[in-house]
């Protein structure tokens, strides 16, 4: 699964990228691979304003629950309601169908990693 163009990632494996004027936030395919079968997703309420690094969602695999952190500060403008009944969309397509929330970012801070930096980071972690 290829990462979309212009994607920015965190070291905690969330992504944000711009698509048709909105900013989509989700978890990277590396994170999905680590989690295994995703069976449950808890999403925030639309309108919530959160700081970068705050928990905005919980994703549960069969084995455990994992918290998901805001890659940027901003306001949640939409949630992917399909995930409530089809959490497996994250497994099958984490970047397109499996996005978690859309945000209105306060700013896109520059300490996020671009696709290449993130790949490097992952291979360092793997070693």
């Amino acid at each position: 699964m290829g990462a979309p163009e212009g994607i920015l990632c965190t070291k905690t494996h969330e992504y944000v990228y711009e698509k048709d004027g909105s900013y989509l936030v989700g978890i990277t395919d590396y994170a999905v691979e680590q989690l295994g079968d995703i069976v449950f997703v808890e999403l925030p309420e639309v309108g919530t304003e959160l700081e970068k690094k705050e928990v905005f969602a919980t994703i549960e695999s069969v084995k455990a629950a994992s918290e998901v952190y805001m890659p940027v500060s901003g306001k949640i403008v939409e949630i992917n309601e399909r995930l409530l009944n089809e959490p497996e969309l994250i497994n099958s397509d984490c970047y397109e169908e499996g996005w978690l929330i859309k945000v209105e970012p306060a700013s896109l801070e520059s300490d996020l990693e671009d696709a290449m930096e993130y790949e490097d980071y992952i291979s360092d972690v793997e070693e």
Binding site: G36, D37, V39, S61, V62, K63
Partner: peptide, 10 residues
């Protein structure tokens, strides 16, 4: 082995 490529649910 915790799981094989098919995954826990499968």
């Amino acid at each position: 082995p915790i799981q094989y490529p098919d995954g826990i649910v499968a």
